[in-house]
Design a protein around this nucleic acid. Structure first.
Lengths: 203, 203
DNA sequence: GTTTTCATGTAACCCGTTACATGATTCA
DNA sequence: TGAATCATGTAACGGGTTACATGAAAAC
Protein backbone atom coordinates (compact mmCIF):
# COMPACT_ATOMS: atom_id res chain seq x y z
CA UNK A 1 0.00 0.00 0.00
CA UNK A 2 2.22 2.76 1.29
CA UNK A 3 4.97 3.75 -1.08
CA UNK A 4 7.20 5.74 1.34
CA UNK A 5 10.49 7.19 0.43
CA UNK A 6 11.42 10.55 1.89
CA UNK A 7 13.95 11.51 4.42
CA UNK A 8 12.14 9.82 7.28
CA UNK A 9 12.92 6.40 5.83
CA UNK A 10 16.51 7.49 5.42
CA UNK A 11 16.91 8.73 8.96
CA UNK A 12 15.24 5.62 10.39
CA UNK A 13 17.56 3.29 8.51
CA UNK A 14 20.54 5.30 9.68
CA UNK A 15 19.54 5.30 13.32
CA UNK A 16 18.74 1.60 13.30
CA UNK A 17 22.10 0.90 11.77
CA UNK A 18 23.71 1.97 15.02
CA UNK A 19 21.53 -0.30 17.11
CA UNK A 20 18.04 -1.88 17.15
CA UNK A 21 15.31 0.20 18.74
CA UNK A 22 11.57 0.42 19.16
CA UNK A 23 9.50 3.17 17.59
CA UNK A 24 9.08 5.39 20.59
CA UNK A 25 12.78 5.60 21.29
CA UNK A 26 13.51 6.09 17.61
CA UNK A 27 11.34 9.15 17.55
CA UNK A 28 13.12 10.64 20.52
CA UNK A 29 16.48 10.16 18.87
CA UNK A 30 15.18 11.70 15.67
CA UNK A 31 14.68 14.90 17.64
CA UNK A 32 17.80 14.86 19.81
CA UNK A 33 20.79 13.00 18.45
CA UNK A 34 19.72 13.99 15.00
CA UNK A 35 18.44 17.01 16.81
CA UNK A 36 19.08 19.72 14.27
CA UNK A 37 16.20 18.37 12.27
CA UNK A 38 12.47 18.61 12.34
CA UNK A 39 10.40 16.67 14.84
CA UNK A 40 8.76 13.74 13.14
CA UNK A 41 5.42 12.60 14.47
CA UNK A 42 4.27 9.12 15.42
CA UNK A 43 1.63 9.42 12.77
CA UNK A 44 4.35 9.23 10.15
CA UNK A 45 6.91 7.13 12.01
CA UNK A 46 4.87 4.01 12.76
CA UNK A 47 3.39 3.61 9.27
CA UNK A 48 6.87 4.15 7.89
CA UNK A 49 8.26 1.36 10.07
CA UNK A 50 5.52 -0.95 8.85
CA UNK A 51 6.28 -0.41 5.20
CA UNK A 52 10.01 -0.73 5.77
CA UNK A 53 9.35 -4.14 7.31
CA UNK A 54 7.18 -5.09 4.34
CA UNK A 55 10.01 -4.23 2.01
CA UNK A 56 12.46 -6.27 3.99
CA UNK A 57 14.69 -3.42 5.09
CA UNK A 58 13.70 -3.93 8.72
CA UNK A 59 12.83 -6.95 10.86
CA UNK A 60 10.59 -6.92 13.92
CA UNK A 61 11.89 -8.52 17.05
CA UNK A 62 9.80 -9.35 20.08
CA UNK A 63 10.90 -6.73 22.56
CA UNK A 64 12.13 -7.79 25.98
CA UNK A 65 8.90 -8.85 27.67
CA UNK A 66 8.96 -7.14 31.04
CA UNK A 67 9.01 -9.66 33.94
CA UNK A 68 6.01 -11.92 33.38
CA UNK A 69 6.82 -13.88 30.23
CA UNK A 70 4.40 -16.59 31.34
CA UNK A 71 1.37 -14.47 32.24
CA UNK A 72 -0.56 -13.89 28.98
CA UNK A 73 1.41 -15.62 26.24
CA UNK A 74 -0.92 -15.08 23.28
CA UNK A 75 -3.65 -12.67 24.29
CA UNK A 76 -3.68 -9.04 23.16
CA UNK A 77 0.08 -9.11 23.72
CA UNK A 78 1.27 -6.01 22.00
CA UNK A 79 4.52 -5.30 23.83
CA UNK A 80 7.40 -3.21 22.60
CA UNK A 81 8.37 -3.96 19.04
CA UNK A 82 12.07 -3.68 18.50
CA UNK A 83 13.17 -3.04 14.94
CA UNK A 84 16.45 -4.30 13.57
CA UNK A 85 18.12 -3.39 10.28
CA UNK A 86 18.38 -6.33 7.87
CA UNK A 87 21.25 -6.87 5.45
CA UNK A 88 19.06 -5.56 2.63
CA UNK A 89 18.22 -2.54 4.76
CA UNK A 90 21.89 -1.87 5.25
CA UNK A 91 22.43 -1.99 1.50
CA UNK A 92 19.52 0.36 0.97
CA UNK A 93 20.97 2.82 3.48
CA UNK A 94 24.39 2.66 1.80
CA UNK A 95 22.67 3.39 -1.49
CA UNK A 96 20.81 6.40 -0.12
CA UNK A 97 23.92 7.71 1.60
CA UNK A 98 26.05 7.81 -1.50
CA UNK A 99 23.41 9.31 -3.75
CA UNK A 100 24.62 12.72 -4.83
CA UNK A 101 22.13 13.49 -7.60
CA UNK A 102 19.97 16.60 -7.60
CA UNK A 103 16.98 14.58 -6.35
CA UNK A 104 18.49 14.36 -2.93
CA UNK A 105 16.05 16.44 -0.80
CA UNK A 106 18.58 19.26 -1.05
CA UNK A 107 19.13 20.67 2.44
CA UNK A 108 17.60 18.14 4.76
CA UNK A 109 19.06 15.23 2.86
CA UNK A 110 22.53 16.61 3.36
CA UNK A 111 21.89 17.11 7.06
CA UNK A 112 20.95 13.47 7.47
CA UNK A 113 23.90 12.27 5.41
CA UNK A 114 26.27 14.37 7.44
CA UNK A 115 24.78 13.17 10.71
CA UNK A 116 25.71 9.61 9.75
CA UNK A 117 29.22 10.41 8.63
CA UNK A 118 30.63 8.59 11.62
CA UNK A 119 29.46 5.31 10.10
CA UNK A 120 30.77 6.00 6.64
CA UNK A 121 33.89 5.52 4.60
CA UNK A 122 35.95 8.53 3.64
CA UNK A 123 35.13 7.93 -0.01
CA UNK A 124 31.44 8.38 0.64
CA UNK A 125 32.09 11.41 2.83
CA UNK A 126 34.10 13.08 0.10
CA UNK A 127 31.45 12.40 -2.50
CA UNK A 128 28.67 13.74 -0.29
CA UNK A 129 30.60 16.88 0.63
CA UNK A 130 31.64 17.60 -2.94
CA UNK A 131 28.18 16.88 -4.24
CA UNK A 132 26.69 19.28 -1.75
CA UNK A 133 29.23 21.92 -2.66
CA UNK A 134 28.61 21.70 -6.37
CA UNK A 135 24.86 21.92 -5.86
CA UNK A 136 25.30 24.98 -3.68
CA UNK A 137 27.47 26.52 -6.35
CA UNK A 138 24.80 25.89 -8.94
CA UNK A 139 22.35 27.59 -6.67
CA UNK A 140 24.68 30.55 -6.26
CA UNK A 141 25.06 30.89 -10.00
CA UNK A 142 21.30 30.90 -10.45
CA UNK A 143 20.88 33.50 -7.74
CA UNK A 144 23.52 35.72 -9.31
CA UNK A 145 22.00 35.67 -12.77
CA UNK A 146 18.50 36.18 -11.39
CA UNK A 147 19.80 39.11 -9.39
CA UNK A 148 21.60 40.60 -12.39
CA UNK A 149 18.43 40.44 -14.49
CA UNK A 150 16.18 42.07 -11.91
CA UNK A 151 18.43 44.27 -9.81
CA UNK A 152 17.01 47.57 -11.05
CA UNK A 153 13.36 46.91 -10.32
CA UNK A 154 13.85 45.58 -6.79
CA UNK A 155 13.52 47.63 -3.66
CA UNK A 156 16.22 47.82 -1.00
CA UNK A 157 14.64 45.22 1.26
CA UNK A 158 14.39 42.57 -1.42
CA UNK A 159 17.95 43.32 -2.42
CA UNK A 160 19.15 42.98 1.16
CA UNK A 161 17.28 39.68 1.50
CA UNK A 162 18.96 38.30 -1.59
CA UNK A 163 22.35 39.58 -0.50
CA UNK A 164 21.99 37.90 2.86
CA UNK A 165 20.78 34.70 1.24
CA UNK A 166 23.75 34.57 -1.07
CA UNK A 167 26.15 35.32 1.73
CA UNK A 168 24.77 32.41 3.73
CA UNK A 169 25.25 30.05 0.84
CA UNK A 170 28.77 31.34 0.25
CA UNK A 171 29.57 30.75 3.89
CA UNK A 172 28.37 27.19 3.69
CA UNK A 173 30.56 26.64 0.64
CA UNK A 174 33.58 27.87 2.59
CA UNK A 175 32.62 25.56 5.45
CA UNK A 176 32.43 22.64 3.02
CA UNK A 177 35.81 23.58 1.61
CA UNK A 178 37.36 23.33 5.05
CA UNK A 179 35.73 19.98 5.68
CA UNK A 180 36.83 18.62 2.32
CA UNK A 181 40.32 19.90 2.96
CA UNK A 182 40.50 18.20 6.34
CA UNK A 183 39.14 14.96 4.90
CA UNK A 184 41.78 15.05 2.21
CA UNK A 185 44.46 15.78 4.77
CA UNK A 186 43.25 12.84 6.81
CA UNK A 187 43.61 10.58 3.77
CA UNK A 188 47.06 11.83 2.83
CA UNK A 189 48.31 11.13 6.32
CA UNK A 190 46.18 7.97 6.63
CA UNK A 191 46.15 8.32 10.37
CA UNK A 192 45.25 5.42 12.66
CA UNK A 193 41.96 7.05 13.66
CA UNK A 194 38.72 6.72 11.71
CA UNK A 195 39.02 3.30 10.04
CA UNK A 196 37.35 3.29 6.60
CA UNK A 197 34.42 1.04 7.48
CA UNK A 198 33.90 0.21 11.15
CA UNK A 199 32.17 -3.11 11.91
CA UNK A 200 31.34 -3.99 8.34
CA UNK A 201 29.93 -7.48 8.79
CA UNK A 202 27.76 -7.61 5.70
CA UNK A 203 30.21 -8.29 2.90
CA UNK B 1 -13.83 22.56 -1.38
CA UNK B 2 -10.21 23.47 -1.05
CA UNK B 3 -9.26 24.95 2.27
CA UNK B 4 -5.87 26.50 1.32
CA UNK B 5 -3.74 28.50 3.61
CA UNK B 6 0.00 28.09 3.37
CA UNK B 7 2.66 30.37 2.11
CA UNK B 8 1.51 30.22 -1.50
CA UNK B 9 -1.66 32.11 -0.63
CA UNK B 10 0.45 34.61 1.27
CA UNK B 11 2.89 35.20 -1.57
CA UNK B 12 0.09 35.52 -4.12
CA UNK B 13 -1.72 38.13 -2.07
CA UNK B 14 1.51 40.04 -1.64
CA UNK B 15 2.39 40.05 -5.32
CA UNK B 16 -1.11 41.04 -6.37
CA UNK B 17 -1.01 43.88 -3.92
CA UNK B 18 1.63 45.53 -6.07
CA UNK B 19 -0.42 45.19 -9.25
CA UNK B 20 -3.04 42.92 -10.85
CA UNK B 21 -1.71 39.99 -12.84
CA UNK B 22 -2.75 36.78 -14.51
CA UNK B 23 -1.68 33.38 -13.23
CA UNK B 24 1.12 32.68 -15.65
CA UNK B 25 2.91 35.92 -14.91
CA UNK B 26 2.34 35.48 -11.20
CA UNK B 27 4.15 32.20 -11.28
CA UNK B 28 7.11 33.73 -13.04
CA UNK B 29 7.38 36.46 -10.46
CA UNK B 30 7.14 33.90 -7.67
CA UNK B 31 10.40 32.46 -8.98
CA UNK B 32 12.26 35.65 -9.83
CA UNK B 33 11.26 38.78 -7.93
CA UNK B 34 10.56 36.62 -4.94
CA UNK B 35 13.37 34.58 -6.37
CA UNK B 36 15.01 33.25 -3.25
CA UNK B 37 12.11 30.92 -2.78
CA UNK B 38 10.95 27.63 -4.13
CA UNK B 39 9.41 27.34 -7.56
CA UNK B 40 5.69 26.88 -7.23
CA UNK B 41 3.91 24.85 -9.88
CA UNK B 42 0.80 25.68 -11.87
CA UNK B 43 -0.83 22.66 -10.33
CA UNK B 44 -0.90 24.49 -7.03
CA UNK B 45 -1.12 28.06 -8.25
CA UNK B 46 -4.32 27.91 -10.31
CA UNK B 47 -6.39 26.01 -7.74
CA UNK B 48 -5.11 28.45 -5.15
CA UNK B 49 -6.28 31.42 -7.22
CA UNK B 50 -9.69 29.82 -7.57
CA UNK B 51 -10.21 29.38 -3.87
CA UNK B 52 -8.92 32.85 -3.13
CA UNK B 53 -11.57 34.20 -5.48
CA UNK B 54 -14.20 32.08 -3.75
CA UNK B 55 -13.23 33.56 -0.44
CA UNK B 56 -13.40 37.06 -1.81
CA UNK B 57 -9.74 37.93 -1.40
CA UNK B 58 -9.31 38.17 -5.17
CA UNK B 59 -11.51 39.30 -8.05
CA UNK B 60 -11.24 38.07 -11.62
CA UNK B 61 -11.08 40.65 -14.34
CA UNK B 62 -11.53 39.94 -18.02
CA UNK B 63 -8.02 40.26 -19.36
CA UNK B 64 -7.31 42.62 -22.24
CA UNK B 65 -8.81 40.75 -25.18
CA UNK B 66 -6.14 40.82 -27.88
CA UNK B 67 -7.28 42.63 -31.05
CA UNK B 68 -10.49 40.92 -32.16
CA UNK B 69 -13.03 41.68 -29.47
CA UNK B 70 -15.80 41.06 -31.95
CA UNK B 71 -14.71 37.73 -33.42
CA UNK B 72 -16.04 35.05 -31.03
CA UNK B 73 -17.80 36.88 -28.22
CA UNK B 74 -19.18 33.97 -26.21
CA UNK B 75 -17.72 30.73 -27.57
CA UNK B 76 -14.98 28.85 -25.75
CA UNK B 77 -13.53 32.27 -24.92
CA UNK B 78 -11.09 31.53 -22.19
CA UNK B 79 -8.66 34.41 -22.48
CA UNK B 80 -6.24 35.64 -19.88
CA UNK B 81 -7.75 36.00 -16.45
CA UNK B 82 -6.33 38.94 -14.58
CA UNK B 83 -6.60 38.75 -10.81
CA UNK B 84 -6.94 41.82 -8.66
CA UNK B 85 -6.68 42.07 -4.89
CA UNK B 86 -9.95 43.08 -3.22
CA UNK B 87 -10.20 45.23 -0.10
CA UNK B 88 -10.85 42.09 1.95
CA UNK B 89 -7.81 40.48 0.35
CA UNK B 90 -5.74 43.45 1.35
CA UNK B 91 -6.93 43.09 4.93
CA UNK B 92 -6.14 39.40 4.86
CA UNK B 93 -2.63 40.12 3.62
CA UNK B 94 -2.11 42.73 6.35
CA UNK B 95 -3.24 40.17 8.88
CA UNK B 96 -0.85 37.51 7.59
CA UNK B 97 2.01 40.00 7.43
CA UNK B 98 1.79 41.07 11.01
CA UNK B 99 1.36 37.60 12.44
CA UNK B 100 4.37 36.89 14.61
CA UNK B 101 3.18 33.77 16.40
CA UNK B 102 5.10 30.50 16.31
CA UNK B 103 2.70 29.10 13.69
CA UNK B 104 4.25 31.25 11.04
CA UNK B 105 5.89 28.68 8.71
CA UNK B 106 9.13 29.56 10.43
CA UNK B 107 11.76 30.16 7.76
CA UNK B 108 9.82 30.52 4.53
CA UNK B 109 7.19 32.67 6.15
CA UNK B 110 9.81 35.14 7.24
CA UNK B 111 11.28 35.21 3.76
CA UNK B 112 7.94 36.14 2.26
CA UNK B 113 7.28 38.77 4.91
CA UNK B 114 10.67 40.30 4.35
CA UNK B 115 10.22 40.32 0.59
CA UNK B 116 7.15 42.51 1.04
CA UNK B 117 8.76 44.93 3.46
CA UNK B 118 8.71 47.64 0.83
CA UNK B 119 4.93 47.80 1.09
CA UNK B 120 4.80 47.82 4.85
CA UNK B 121 4.81 50.27 7.69
CA UNK B 122 7.81 50.45 9.93
CA UNK B 123 5.73 49.20 12.85
CA UNK B 124 5.01 45.95 11.06
CA UNK B 125 8.61 45.63 9.95
CA UNK B 126 9.83 45.98 13.50
CA UNK B 127 7.37 43.43 14.78
CA UNK B 128 8.30 40.92 12.09
CA UNK B 129 12.02 41.36 12.62
CA UNK B 130 11.77 41.15 16.39
CA UNK B 131 9.43 38.19 16.20
CA UNK B 132 11.84 36.38 13.95
CA UNK B 133 14.72 37.17 16.24
CA UNK B 134 13.00 35.90 19.34
CA UNK B 135 12.02 32.67 17.61
CA UNK B 136 15.58 32.15 16.46
CA UNK B 137 16.76 32.75 19.98
CA UNK B 138 14.34 30.14 21.26
CA UNK B 139 15.72 27.76 18.69
CA UNK B 140 19.25 28.54 19.81
CA UNK B 141 18.35 27.88 23.43
CA UNK B 142 16.84 24.52 22.53
CA UNK B 143 19.89 23.59 20.49
CA UNK B 144 22.20 24.52 23.34
CA UNK B 145 20.38 22.45 25.95
CA UNK B 146 20.03 19.51 23.58
CA UNK B 147 23.74 19.73 22.89
CA UNK B 148 24.61 19.96 26.57
CA UNK B 149 22.58 16.83 27.32
CA UNK B 150 24.09 14.71 24.57
CA UNK B 151 27.54 16.12 23.95
CA UNK B 152 29.45 13.13 25.30
CA UNK B 153 27.81 10.44 23.20
CA UNK B 154 28.08 12.25 19.89
CA UNK B 155 30.81 11.72 17.35
CA UNK B 156 32.90 14.55 15.93
CA UNK B 157 30.86 14.88 12.75
CA UNK B 158 27.54 15.28 14.52
CA UNK B 159 29.16 17.79 16.83
CA UNK B 160 30.55 19.76 13.93
CA UNK B 161 27.14 19.73 12.23
CA UNK B 162 25.48 21.13 15.33
CA UNK B 163 28.20 23.71 15.80
CA UNK B 164 27.81 24.90 12.24
CA UNK B 165 24.04 24.93 12.55
CA UNK B 166 24.19 27.06 15.69
CA UNK B 167 26.70 29.42 14.15
CA UNK B 168 24.38 29.97 11.20
CA UNK B 169 21.51 30.83 13.47
CA UNK B 170 23.70 33.16 15.51
CA UNK B 171 24.76 34.93 12.36
CA UNK B 172 21.19 35.44 11.33
CA UNK B 173 20.43 36.90 14.74
CA UNK B 174 23.25 39.39 14.32
CA UNK B 175 21.92 40.26 10.88
CA UNK B 176 18.49 40.87 12.36
CA UNK B 177 20.04 43.04 15.05
CA UNK B 178 21.58 45.26 12.41
CA UNK B 179 18.31 45.52 10.52
CA UNK B 180 16.38 46.33 13.67
CA UNK B 181 18.97 48.89 14.60
CA UNK B 182 18.73 50.59 11.23
CA UNK B 183 14.94 50.57 11.33
CA UNK B 184 15.05 52.18 14.74
CA UNK B 185 17.53 54.77 13.54
CA UNK B 186 15.22 55.53 10.63
CA UNK B 187 12.34 56.15 13.02
CA UNK B 188 14.32 58.32 15.45
CA UNK B 189 15.37 60.57 12.61
CA UNK B 190 11.94 60.27 10.98
CA UNK B 191 13.44 60.99 7.59
CA UNK B 192 11.36 62.05 4.62
CA UNK B 193 11.85 58.72 2.87
CA UNK B 194 9.71 55.62 3.45
CA UNK B 195 6.29 57.03 4.35
CA UNK B 196 4.58 54.79 6.93
CA UNK B 197 1.79 53.47 4.69
CA UNK B 198 2.07 54.16 0.95
CA UNK B 199 -1.20 54.35 -1.00
CA UNK B 200 -3.42 53.20 1.82
CA UNK B 201 -6.83 53.60 0.20
CA UNK B 202 -8.71 50.99 2.19
CA UNK B 203 -9.33 52.69 5.53
C1' DG C 1 -4.95 5.27 43.30
C1' DT C 2 -4.31 8.62 40.28
C1' DT C 3 -1.37 11.02 37.24
C1' DT C 4 2.69 10.78 34.01
C1' DT C 5 5.25 8.82 30.83
C1' DC C 6 5.91 5.00 27.80
C1' DA C 7 4.30 2.77 23.70
C1' DT C 8 1.58 1.81 19.49
C1' DG C 9 -1.39 2.85 16.29
C1' DT C 10 -5.39 4.95 12.78
C1' DA C 11 -8.23 8.38 9.99
C1' DA C 12 -8.61 12.59 8.19
C1' DC C 13 -6.54 16.16 6.43
C1' DC C 14 -2.92 19.63 4.27
C1' DC C 15 -0.32 21.77 1.09
C1' DG C 16 2.05 20.96 -2.32
C1' DT C 17 4.03 18.27 -6.79
C1' DT C 18 4.01 15.43 -11.25
C1' DA C 19 2.17 14.31 -15.20
C1' DC C 20 -1.11 15.15 -18.23
C1' DA C 21 -4.42 17.72 -21.45
C1' DT C 22 -5.89 21.69 -24.00
C1' DG C 23 -5.72 25.55 -26.82
C1' DA C 24 -4.26 30.36 -28.26
C1' DT C 25 -0.41 33.37 -29.86
C1' DT C 26 4.18 34.48 -31.61
C1' DC C 27 8.02 33.71 -34.26
C1' DA C 28 11.19 31.39 -37.56
C1' DT D 1 3.36 25.71 -41.46
C1' DG D 2 5.36 24.17 -37.74
C1' DA D 3 7.76 24.93 -33.30
C1' DA D 4 8.17 27.55 -29.15
C1' DT D 5 6.06 29.87 -25.51
C1' DC D 6 2.03 31.73 -23.45
C1' DA D 7 -1.89 30.49 -20.73
C1' DT D 8 -5.12 27.61 -18.03
C1' DG D 9 -6.42 23.83 -15.98
C1' DT D 10 -7.27 18.63 -13.77
C1' DA D 11 -6.31 13.92 -11.44
C1' DA D 12 -3.51 11.28 -8.96
C1' DC D 13 -0.24 11.05 -5.92
C1' DG D 14 3.26 12.12 -1.93
C1' DG D 15 5.08 12.69 2.26
C1' DG D 16 4.20 14.42 5.87
C1' DT D 17 0.93 16.44 10.24
C1' DT D 18 -3.02 16.69 13.71
C1' DA D 19 -6.08 14.81 16.43
C1' DC D 20 -7.68 10.96 18.24
C1' DA D 21 -7.87 6.27 20.64
C1' DT D 22 -5.94 2.72 23.44
C1' DG D 23 -3.51 0.54 26.98
C1' DA D 24 0.51 -0.85 29.98
C1' DA D 25 4.24 0.64 33.28
C1' DA D 26 6.25 3.87 36.44
C1' DA D 27 6.09 7.61 39.71
C1' DC D 28 3.87 10.29 43.08
Amino acid sequence: MGRRSGILEFAVLGLLRESPMHGYELRKRLNTSLGVFRAFSYGSLYPCLKTLVQRGWLAEEPGDEPEDSLAAPLAGRRAKIVYRLTAEGKERFEELLSQTGPDTWEDEGFGVRFAFFGQTSRDVRMRVLEGRRSRLEERLAKMRTALARTRERLDDYTLELQRHGMESVEREVRWLNELIESERAGRDQHRGQTPPDPSDDTA
